Simulated assay, not measured.
Amino acid sequence: MSSSIIQVERAEKIFSGGLKVLHGVSLAIARGERVALIGPNGAGKSTLLRCLAGLLPITGGSIGILDEHFSTQPSARQRRALRKRLGFVFQFHGLVRRTSALSNVVNGYLGQDIGWRAWHQALAPASLRAEALNALEAVGLEEKWNARADTLSGGQSQRVAIARAIVHKPELLIADEPAASLDPAAGAEVMTLFHRLAVERGSTLLFTTHDMDHALAYSDRVIALRQGRIVLDASSGSLKRCDLEPIFHGQ
């Protein structure tokens, strides 16, 4: 088994209309690493994450992730395998608003071939509900298990989204700007929680951020994209804010 949990070779992504967002990106991420992916708007960060997770096909190159390898997009079998081993948190939590926090976390198991009826807590097996409650407890929301998602604050909603991503104990956690929609205090709480859970569970963590302090504080390594190309790849311990500012300011 490879020591790299992610291996990207010359990945390209061209959208309809000819817009090229990724220009031959190559990188490797080792198992257990915590990596921040930074860059200005339009750098290709979110596109790269979605290509890694199989949510978007790549146009050229290849991706190896969690021992699955593909050159366009994963097959149906590979998508099922990835869902069992990968947790993904979107920038905007994407909860089902009129169902409970617990139901939303149970929904994280839908990729495990449980079936569509399991989305509702009352229809889910007791063991699955117990796992969902454990995940909510891990993010400090066990008392909100029955609260409807549309009654939760932004920070609470993002915590539920994290619980949904970790409920099946994934080896790899990917988060696209998990704190961007939150105020600074709530954002720091979510990032601290995310990092702690990854460390405690031994999960590899890859997250995008526009916050230079978050990039330095919650990662072992920082990778920077500009215009679809990697322009920096270094240990976070060797970097300071002044090293990252030119990436965002176009210098």
Rank of each mutant, 00 (worst) to 15 (best):
A188F: 08
A175E: 05
Q91S: 13
V190Y: 06
V105M: 03
S75V: 13
R164M: 01
A126V: 12
R196L: 02
V139H: 04
L172D: 03
D67R: 11
L173H: 02
A81K: 12
F70E: 11
S103F: 07
F92H: 15
L136T: 06
E131L: 11
P178Y: 01
G140V: 10
A186R: 03
F90A: 13
L141W: 05
E143L: 13
P184R: 00
L136M: 05
E137I: 01
L102S: 07
I114E: 09
D183T: 00
I174D: 03
V139Q: 01
Q73H: 14
H195K: 12
R164F: 04
A147F: 12
L110Y: 04
W119H: 08
H120F: 15
A188E: 13
F70T: 10
A81E: 14
V106W: 04
A126I: 09
I166A: 01
S71T: 15
L82D: 03
A124R: 01
W116G: 05
G202K: 00
M191G: 02
W116L: 14
E189M: 05
E171S: 10
V105I: 03
G202W: 02
S75C: 10
R77L: 14
R98H: 14
L123Y: 07
V96H: 03
F194P: 07
A124Q: 04
F194I: 15
N134W: 02
T151V: 11
L193T: 07
L95W: 03
N146V: 03
T204K: 00
N134F: 04
N104P: 05
D113H: 10
L141G: 06
G202V: 08
Q158R: 06
E200F: 02
R79K: 15
A130E: 12
V106I: 15
A188T: 11
A149C: 09
R85K: 10
A147Q: 14
L182P: 04
R117S: 13
L141K: 06
S100G: 09
V199R: 13
R98T: 14
R85L: 00
D113W: 07
R164E: 07
H69S: 13
S103D: 13
Q73V: 13
A175C: 08
Q112L: 11
E189T: 00
A132F: 00
S153W: 02
A122T: 10
L86Y: 01
A198T: 01
A163K: 00
A130H: 11
S157C: 14
G111P: 07
